[in-house]
Write a protein that binds this DNA or RNA. Sequence first.
DNA 1: ACGAGTGCGCAAATAAAGTA
DNA 2: TACTTTATTTGCGCACTCGT
Length: 421
Amino acid sequence: MYAFVRFLEDNVCYALPVSCVRDFSPRSRLDFDNQKVYAVYRGPEELGAEPESPPRAPRDWGALLLHKAQILALAEDKSDLENSVMQKKIKIPKLSLSHVEDDGEVKDYGEEDLQLRHIKRPEGRKPSEAAHKSIEAVVARLERQNGLSLGHSTCPEEVFVEASPGTEDMDSLEDAVVPRALYEELLRNYQQQQEEMRHLQQELERTRRQLVQQAKKLKEYGALVSEMKELRDLNRRLQDVLLLRLGSGPAIDLEKVKSECLEPEPELRSTFSEEANTSSYYPAPAPVMDKYILDNGKVHLGSGIWVDEEKWHQLQVTQGDSKYTKNLAVMIWGTDVLKNRSVTGVATKKKKDAIPKPPLSPHKLSIVRECLYDRIAQETVDETEIAQRLSKVNKYICEKIMDINKSCKNEERREAKYNLQ
DNA sequence: ACGAGTGCGCAAATAAAGTA
DNA sequence: TACTTTATTTGCGCACTCGT
């Protein structure tokens, strides 16, 4: 008589002679307990023998390696058993805990046994199925920790086998049977991963929102910068237009009166015109069309300011901003005017009750700045350097005024000395 | 060659005005 | 309110010119 058994350690099922089951002598095909754990001699296949050679009943049970197994069916003939298995589903009943606990005689299998069961399978199970092996290892570990039948007793799933031993369908049986502990462990891991994923997605969304905010701020900043540039440009144009209107309109009389009172330089003054170059406190970066034009031995510096051509050419070869500015100031105002002026009209703070000297015309000062700007612009394009050098124009002119006054005082001293002699 | 005068550049001092 | 900027003045040193 043959028994169709399921080995608990690896869920492998196949038919064996009932003589391989210890203390088992069934009188009929129904004379077995499908909820009981039997000690079964798995046969010589464990040691690498051919699975086709059926194991015989052992003579000495104590010397043999026994395995826990569950009997699923009995048959007189092995082929009959296999046929019945092929044709109908075999229900794997739930094992009772008492049966397992009672079975203390069964030799416990250790790590060595777990390794042996992978050496060879009677059904030719594919050894490369690492995933199945890992699951089996987890199952075996849980069984060792919780007791042999705990994994099965707590597993309510009922698996229906529609297979015969020696086919691939035995794997589907193994796939189908998943212990609840393993299932819950995997489920917990899955839920943990999902939670982590949600957290990462929230983080990603937060970062994305921050990026959008930064981009908005950058855009606003760019708009402000362009607006500031536009306002500065408009301001310059406004200054130019105002100066132009002052020079060409009715206000020219006021400017003339003011100029004549402060700067009696008729040889340099000319009529303002709409075509004349406009000037501003900040020199225009680009050269103006009618600037530096020659006419009758004179050079037009803009806004009706003309200087001698020869002196102008000499000025162009002058080295240094200081010398250039001072010479240009003398060309425009003359030493007689400069010695009685200050750059801005502010009285000296070093002497109390000092009488403030009249300021130089801001309009002509802007001409000086424009000329120096054009000169510096030929050397460098660095706006910072240009601005820094231009900021010294007032200082240079102030120094020139002081130099002229120094010379005058020295001359007066000489004259006084000469008169005394 | 030497001294005086001059131009030039720079630093320092001073005080007012502006700014953070 | 302290700090910075700006304008003005003064002084000093160096290089160059010119008369002696």
